[in-house]
């Protein structure tokens, strides 16, 4: 777990980018992916987010040449997956991993090593990297969900790829596993690799990703850096006063939108500094004055809710203060 994954391709100055262009997949007349376009840059972890059924897995399957797009294309370094001569050395990917339950973890890796151009030594290296030492000669049928995820990740890394695409890699990982995965993905990005990680829950990857691509109902609803996504979050300030009546008068005077919260009030759409200044000016004593944490999950849910209109870049009205 201490060693880095790779020795060879990490010196590549810039890993290939992923470009998805007007990608569309229609199943039985219904679009699962609908004119989706986005790019994934090297040197960063990009979260590919959306509720279940938003078309994330379908997009990834088209990106990896497992499914044929109805229209549009998905490119890695300017080529489709199948146009690469040894794609597993360019793109490492793990979909919902399938394993033969009677095969050992090591044999699973060895089964796919040859087309990646690597041998048993690389398999042993990866067993160590993903923390499966001691379990690699046991049959996968006895592995926990978390161990299977680790084995799937090891399989993805066989060819030491500069581009890494993982579908819901945190599923089944325990909290320590999620922290471990976070460090690993951060390390990949620091090495200059292009990393795309899908998840149905922003919270799961919030501390891992630099950029977000958010989809709902097969369409892009938002693509930006995580910081820009935070700008869309509604501001709120928690405030409490020993003089509830005075605070009430201030709220009424300022026409703030408030909700009862703990022993005080939650003031919506107003920053803590503004609340504090107004209270000071009005002579209202405050015991608590706290900016609420930016709730990205709330932004995510709002963006992906069925009533939300798709808008790729326009800030949400709530963010306009």
């Amino acid at each position: 777990m201490t060693s880095t994954t790779s020795t060879s391709t990490t010196s590549t100055p810039s890993a290939p980018a992923i470009e998805v262009e007007a990608l569309t997949k229609v199943y039985g007349g219904l679009p699962a992916v609908d004119g989706l376009s986005f790019t994934v840059r090297p040197g960063a972890v990009t979260g590919f987010l959306g509720p279940n059924g938003a078309g994330k897995t379908t997009t990834i399957r088209m990106l990896l040449g497992l499914a044929e797009p109805t229209a549009g294309r998905a490119l890695i370094g300017g080529r489709t997956y199948r146009e690469h001569r040894r794609p597993a050395t360019v793109v490492g990917s793990s979909l919902e991993p399938g394993f033969h339950p009677g095969r050992s973890g090591m044999d699973h890796l060895r089964s796919f090593a040859a087309p990646c151009g690597v041998g048993a030594a690389r398999c042993r290296e990866l067993v160590a990297l993903v923390g499966l030492e001691g379990a690699e000669h046991r049959r996968v049928g006895g592995y926990s969900m978390g161990m299977r995820q680790r084995l799937g990740l090891a399989t993805a890394l066989l060819g030491d790829p500069p581009v890494i695409v993982l579908d819901e890699p945190a599923n089944g990982l325990d909290p320590q596993g999620i922290v471990w995965l976070r460090h690993l993905l951060r390390q990949f990005a620091a090495e200059g690799r292009t990393v795309l990680v899908s998840s149905h829950a922003l919270r799961e990857v919030q501390h891992t990703v630099d950029d977000v691509v958010i989809v709902a109902r097969g369409r892009l609803v938002h693509a930006s850096s995580l910081a820009s996504l935070a700008d869309l979050a509604a501001v709120a300030t928690y405030v409490s006063s020993p003089d509830g009546a005075a605070l009430g008068r201030l709220v009424a005077h300022q026409a703030w939108r408030v909700a009862p919260h703990e022993s005080g009030l939650l003031v919506h759409d107003v920053a803590a500094a503004q609340v504090g200044d107004a209270a000071f000016a009005a002579g209202v004593p405050l015991h608590r004055l706290e900016p609420r944490d930016v709730d990205l999950e709330e932004v995510f849910l709002r963006l992906t809710s069925p009533t939300s209109a798709p808008s790729a870049t326009a800030p949400h009205p709530a963010a306009v203060r």
Binding site: A88, L95, G98, P101, F112, P115
Partner: peptide
């Protein structure tokens, strides 16, 4: 059929898309 039953066919086609 084993590859389809145990869903290893995806991994097989990832390392060898031809």
């Amino acid at each position: 059929t084993g590859e389809f039953r145990h869903r290893t066919i995806a991994q097989t086609l990832l390392v060898e898309p031809r």
